[in-house]
Write a protein that binds this DNA or RNA. Structure first.
Lengths: 339, 339
DNA sequence: AACTCGCTGACAACCGGTTGCCATTCGATG
DNA sequence: CATCGAATGGCAACCGGTTGTCAGCGAGTT
């Protein structure tokens, strides 16, 4: 088996190919990017030479001259939050399949980092996917007006979005708790700038009113495992028998804290998380949580963005996509004490 | 508070600045990148104009003309493996601090994807950090000869490397088990192409011989949680009372499987993991594991790479860096049955 | 045979910067 | 006052592609 020619020295350019074939560089360019524009014989000669020289186009140059970078920025607030792992993998796979490069940036939960990153990405990418933006509505809408964008878990007018959300699932979660006899429930809130958290709280109050149970709002808490300690303490102090928690990270932190304090989960306190992240199935006890197809959300976000970039398809661009979620009952919920 | 000028329409270029200031574009370029080369008055005029026009350089153009992309590729075999989260965060933070962009690629545990990614990155980045390469030694060395590279957890002659390794820690792990009375121990091996796994096994056999205990090699297993089931079954079947596991992912999978099979950890079987990933502290039981400063490893890898890129500093480039690791004892290890 | 038209390839401008080289200016020095 | 060199700014080539335009050529039409 003949190994492919190993490129040695400087990578080949279209000029090298042109020289080798005795044609102009522009002909080489056309032979490779718009083959119909070139005679079959010439084209084949050029393609053979390209293979022989192990030619691969210089993406910088391509970007500069064509204006398209074949790169897409993906912004997440915290790269170490397992929630984003699956999202990132989803975007990565889908982008790669479409021939795009993923530029992953951790915005460190900061709106300023997010804004400056967006500004920079405006020139170095064809579009961006922004997960859980910490920007305010105006800034986000303004940014979206200047470059193709799809948000994840953030709904702003005029900006295409993938919502992995749980208003409907919140009903399932609360009904699950109610069916177990809980009548005093706390919502452990996420960051104030998180629209997901606000949306979940809104859904929850709505359902609670319908069902005639009490739900109180505790927090806000940072979406980190460490925050679970304060959240657990607040929950215990509030006297509720069950918590619905903004995300699994905090929920897992609560589990640990409650164990330290000798409060049994689920016997003394039931916990429902959100997202079903890595770890939710093997923590102790395994977490009852609202599962969402996160990786799929990443894929959908990419599809929506690519549809914006290449509006060839007939139909208009889908501007909002809601991912279905469902309750996964594990070991962190049971009957209310005394039931 | 005056908001910064919002860039509207096409982003400003040095030509716009040049026109505004009545100078040549080259002067603008110098004023911004080699300020000493330009008269103070002119420079300040240009800088003011740059701010006013909200100028940010086009990185593509910069890359094309200067040959440096200010981007660094980071290759990991599996982006959803929590081990890499911290590594990625480490590289991301350090790269951003140095003004570089991180190009993250998931090579899907495939040597082919890895090779083609490296070839592509050769032109679109200034250097690469390759974690847990699945490439053979020759290919890796060849790739490293063609572009600046630092490997993580992979030691190949002539390629600068950060080794988060555990030969010394393996001693601690085995001695820990021996002190608990275990005399029959299994090593649950990772992928055959993983040098880390081979290195750990080598260290283990060495120590085992010194101490006069039996250690057997089981596997190989894919570095995924699901592999834990097979690994657990193999361990049980082999009759050992303790396992040292290639990584925490497999170890956690084993925990789940053993629980399903009614085998108690640690009473019936002790488990020691490697890496202390997210989840190792809250699984059930919490995992005794070899902890490593993974995020720091990422930072060090970046530092070593940047030292290669800008060899200004006096001293030679450090070509190998070993991160210290230590045993973290949690709940998955205890005395051997019958002791 | 003259004319038109499509196919094909070359030329050159351009994307937005960087950089080598040269001309001018100016102050300092002999 | 002539000379020299440093400081400064401009010109133009270049990085590696893309793309608009045009000329040459051959085939088809009348």
């Amino acid at each position: 088996m003949a190994s492919p020619p190993v490129s040695v020295g400087r990578p080949a350019t279209i000029h090298d190919i042109a020289a080798l074939c005795g044609v102009a560089p522009s002909t080489v360019s056309r032979a490779l990017s718009t083959p119909d524009r070139v005679n079959v014989r010439t084209r084949e000669r050029i393609q053979a030479a390209a293979v022989e020289l192990n030619y691969t186009p210089n993406s910088q140059a391509k970007a500069l001259s064509s204006g398209r970078t074949a790169a897409v920025g993906v912004l997440v607030p915290d790269i170490t939050n397992p929630f984003y792992f699956d999202l990132i993998r989803g975007t990565q796979l889908q982008l790669k399949a479409a021939g795009y490069t993923q530029l992953l940036v951790d915005t460190e939960e900061s709106d300023e980092v997010e804004a400056s990153t967006l500004e920079q990405l405006r020139k170095s990418s064809d579009g961006v996917i922004v997960a859980a933006s910490r920007l305010n509505d105006e800034s986000l809408a303004a940014a979206a007006a200047r470059m193709p964008m799809v948000t994840v878990n953030r709904d702003v007018d005029g900006v295409p979005a993938v919502i992995i959300d749980t208003p409907s699932a919140m009903t399932q979660a609360l009904d699950h708790l109610i069916s177990l006899g809980h009548i005093s429930v706390a919502y452990i809130a996420g960051p104030v700038v998180s629209q997901s958290s606000a949306r979940r709280w809104a859904a929850l109050t709505q359902v609670a009113e319908d069902r005639g149970v009490q739900v109180r709002n505790l927090g806000p808490f940072a979406p980190k495992k460490q925050s679970g300690a304060a959240a657990a303490d607040a929950a215990v102090h509030s006297g509720v028998t069950a918590c619905i928690v903004f995300n699994d990270l905090i929920a897992i932190g609560m589990l640990q804290r409650l164990r330290e304090r000798g409060i049994r989960v689920p016997e003394d306190m039931s916990i429902v998380g959100c997202d079903d992240i890595f770890g939710a199935d093997f923590c102790n006890p395994p977490l009852t949580t609202l599962s969402s197809p996160i990786e799929q959300a990443g894929r959908v976000a990419v599809s929506m963005l690519l549809a914006q970039l290449n509006p060839l398809g007939g139909g208009g661009v889908r501007s909002r996509s809601v991912m279905p979620t469902h309750l996964t009952v594990r070991g962190s919920t049971t009957s209310a004490p005394g039931n």
